[in-house]
C-alpha cells in the first residue's frame, strides 16, 4: 500500500475534546487524578508510607514540646503567647505540608531541569509548570499536614470564622512556599544545576517561618519581609488568626500573587533555554 493510499484510506478522527466547552472541569479532573495516583503510588509500600508520615509528626511534636517547656517558664515572648507559637507551627508545617503533598516537585525542579526530565511533561498537552508540580507527592509531608490539623484542633479557634482564617493562612503559606521554591529552582535554567543552592535558600525560608517575628528587630525584620518572605508567613498567627490586620493581610495576599506571577513567568522564560539531556528517567 502506498503512502497516498494509506493517507486516503485512513479516516482520521479526533477522540479528544480539548477544544470543547468544559475545559476547567477537565483540567480539575486531571489534577485530581494526578493526586490520586500520587497517593496510590505512595501507598504501594504500606509500612514505609505509615512510618514516614508518622515519623514526621513525631519530629514536629518534639519542637512543640520544646516551645511548651519554654512557655512553662516564661508566659510571653515579645507579645507572643504559647497559643500564637503553636499556631505559627501549625501554619508553617501546614503550608509546607500542602506544598510537599500536593505540589511535591516544587523543591525538585532544579534537578528535573538539570537532568533533562522535563521532556515527558513538555511532550504532553498540559500546562508544564502545573503538571510538573503535581506529579510528585512527599509521603512525609502528609505527616506535616496531619500535624498542622492536630495542633489546630488542640489550640485553634474552631468557630466557622476561625476555621476559614486558618484555611486562608495555610493557603497563603503554601502559595509562598511553592512559588518561592519555583523561583529559586528556576535558576537552574540559567546557571546549571542549582539543586544545592535552591535547597539552602528554601531551608532559610522554612526555618525563619517557625520563629515569632517579634524576636527580630530593625534589619532582621527588613530581611524577613523584603528579602526572604518568611515574615508574611510567620506573622499570620498575629496578623490574621488572632485579629485581622488588614494592611498585613493585603500585603501577604499581594506578595503571594507576586510570587505566583514571578515564578510562572520565570519558569516559562526558562523553558526557552531548556537543553534537555540523555539521562534515563522513570516517573516515580
Amino acid at each position: 500500500m502506498s503512502t497516498e493510499d494509506r493517507t486516503n484510506s485512513a479516516s482520521y478522527y479526533s477522540i479528544t475534546e480539548h477544544d470543547q466547552p468544559g475545559k476547567l472541569r477537565r483540567q480539575l479532573s486531571f489534577v485530581l487524578r494526578s493526586w490520586t495516583l500520587n497517593l496510590a503510588g505512595a501507598m504501594e509500600f504500606r509500612l514505609s508510607f505509615l512510618l514516614t508520615a508518622g515519623m514526621m509528626m513525631i519530629n514536629n511534636i518534639v519542637w512543640i514540646v520544646f516551645w511548651g517547656l519554654y512557655f512553662n517558664r516564661f508566659q510571653v515572648l515579645n507579645g507572643w503567647e504559647l497559643h500564637d507559637v503553636m499556631m505559627l507551627w501549625a501554619v508553617s508545617a501546614g503550608g509546607f505540608g500542602l506544598m510537599a503533598t500536593f505540589f511535591g516537585n516544587a523543591s525538585r525542579i532544579a534537578n528535573i531541569i538539570a537532568t533533562g526530565q522535563l521532556d515527558v511533561y513538555l511532550a504532553q498537552p498540559k500546562p508544564v509548570l502545573l503538571h510538573v508540580l503535581i506529579s510528585r507527592m512527599s509521603v512525609s509531608a502528609i505527616g506535616d499536614v496531619l500535624f498542622a490539623l492536630l495542633v489546630f484542633a488542640i489550640f485553634g479557634d474552631k468557630s466557622a470564622a476561625g476555621i476559614a482564617k486558618f484555611g486562608l493562612a495555610m493557603a497563603i503559606a503554601a502559595v509562598i512556599f511553592i512559588f518561592f521554591s519555583v523561583i529559586v529552582n528556576c535558576l537552574a535554567f540559567w546557571v546549571g544545576n542549582t539543586e544545592g543552592l535552591s535547597i539552602q535558600l528554601f531551608n532559610a525560608l522554612l526555618t525563619f517561618t517557625t520563629y515569632p517575628t517579634s524576636i527580630f528587630k530593625s534589619w532582621g525584620k527588613l530581611v524577613l519581609f523584603a528579602v526572604i518572605p518568611a515574615g508574611f508567613i510567620s506573622y499570620l498567627p498575629i496578623g490574621l488568626l488572632r485579629e485581622i490586620n488588614l494592611p498585613f493581610l493585603i500585603g501577604a495576599l499581594a506578595v503571594s500573587a507576586l510570587f505566583v506571577a514571578c515564578g510562572t513567568l520565570l519558569f516559562y522564560r526558562g523553558l526557552k533555554r531548556y537543553t534537555s539531556g540523555n539521562m534515563m528517567t522513570l516517573r516515580r
Partner: peptide, 22 residues
C-alpha cells in the same frame, strides 16, 4: 524516558493519559 508511573500498573497511567489528552 518513560511516561509510565513506575510504582503503578499501566492501567492507571492509561487512565491519567485519558485526562491529559482530554
Amino acid at each position: 524516558k518513560s511516561q509510565l508511573w513506575y510504582h503503578l500498573p499501566p492501567i492507571d497511567t492509561f487512565e491519567l493519559m485519558s485526562r491529559i489528552y482530554e
